Structure formats: structure tokens, C-alpha cells
Computed example of a mutant assay.
Amino acid sequence: MALHRDIFWIGRQWAVTGAGIQAVDQRLRGVLDIDIARLWDEGLVQSRRAKPGVNAEDFDRALTMARERFPETAVSAPFLAQLKALGVVETPVVSPVVAPAMQLRAEGRLARFLPQWRVRR
């Protein structure tokens, strides 16, 4: 996977990006990358650190920078967000601003003789 467009820190082997920690070497195709949601998963971090060829010093520095930038959230927060998106958990309904109804005034006329219209904001 290519490096995310938001790069916050870049080292010799690792980079802290908007996607989390990514390996700078793109030949790995994102195999060793760590997403933001899994930065605090110690099992995953230790397995990545134990891989052969990983520069441990650079990895530790990238991990420290990423954890400062993306602090740990409650475990249930992403789960609740997913439930709200699916509509399982009800959220208070806020009435949207009512836009005036569009009126079409083209009845009985040929379309080629009507003036062109554009939406104005």
C-alpha cells in the first residue's frame, strides 16, 4: 500500500502517517503496517517488532510518535459509532433546515426554448 498522503514523521524504515505506522519500503505492500485503531494492541506491536529485518530503534521511535499523535480511545467508542451508523442505537433527531420546495414551471413549453438553469448556493 502506498504511503498515506498525510505524513507526520518519517524515519529510515518507518513513517507515521494519517493511516498509522507504515513501512517506508513500498515493496512490502503494507504487510507490516499498523492501523491507527491497532496502535495500542501490544500483541500486534510485538509481532511486528520481532520480524526479521525490522530496525527496532526506528520502529520504537515511530510507535512513540504515533501514540502521541493518536491517543488511545475507549474500546467501546468505535463499536458504538458503528452501532449508531447502522441505526441500532438511536440518536436524537435534529430537525434539518427546511429548504423551499422546487417549482417546475415548464408545463406546456418546448424544452429547447426554455432558458438554461443553474443551482445557486
Rank of each mutant, 00 (worst) to 15 (best):
A37S: 05
R109Y: 03
A2Q: 06
E107M: 07
L83M: 15
F70I: 09
G108Y: 02
L44E: 07
P52C: 02
L39S: 05
S95P: 01
P92W: 06
W14D: 06
E68N: 11
G18E: 07
K84Q: 09
V89E: 10
M1D: 08
G11T: 15
V31G: 08
K51I: 12
I34M: 07
R105V: 10
S76L: 14
G18Q: 09
V16C: 05
R69C: 08
A2D: 05
T64N: 10
S95F: 09
A77M: 09
P71Y: 08
Q46V: 12
R38E: 13
L104H: 08
R5W: 03
G20R: 03
V75M: 07
T73V: 03
V88I: 13
V75I: 14
F70Y: 15
R112Q: 04
A56K: 15
F113N: 11
L110V: 11
R27Y: 01
S95G: 03
A77P: 00
L3K: 02
G108W: 01
R48F: 09
E57Q: 11
F113T: 10
L28D: 13
T91E: 13
M1E: 09
P100D: 02
H4I: 00
T73F: 00
M1V: 09
R5Q: 04
E68A: 12
L63N: 15
R48T: 09
P78D: 04
R5E: 06
M65D: 12
R12C: 01
A99M: 09
F59D: 15
V98I: 11
E90Y: 01
L63E: 13
E107I: 00
R120Q: 08
D58K: 11
P92V: 14
L44I: 01
Q46E: 15
V94P: 00
L3H: 02
G108L: 07
I34E: 01
A111Y: 05
R29D: 11
M102Y: 09
D33C: 10
G18N: 08
A37C: 00
S47E: 15
P71I: 00
I21E: 06
P115W: 02
L86H: 07
R109P: 00
L104I: 10
G11H: 10
G87M: 12
E107N: 11
A85T: 00
R48Y: 11
I36V: 13
V119Q: 03
K84A: 06
P96C: 06
M1C: 04
W117E: 11
A81W: 05
Q82Y: 00
A37R: 01
T91V: 06
Q22W: 04
A74G: 13
V93Q: 12
R109K: 05
R105T: 11
V88T: 07
W117D: 01
A111F: 05
R61M: 04
W9S: 07
T64R: 14
L3N: 02
V54A: 12
W14N: 06
V88M: 10
L44P: 05
L3C: 04
E68W: 12
Q116S: 14
P115L: 00
S47P: 03
V16L: 06
T64E: 14
D35Y: 05
P78L: 08
A66C: 04
E42Q: 14
V75R: 13
T64Y: 12
R118Q: 04
A56W: 10
Q82C: 00
A56P: 03
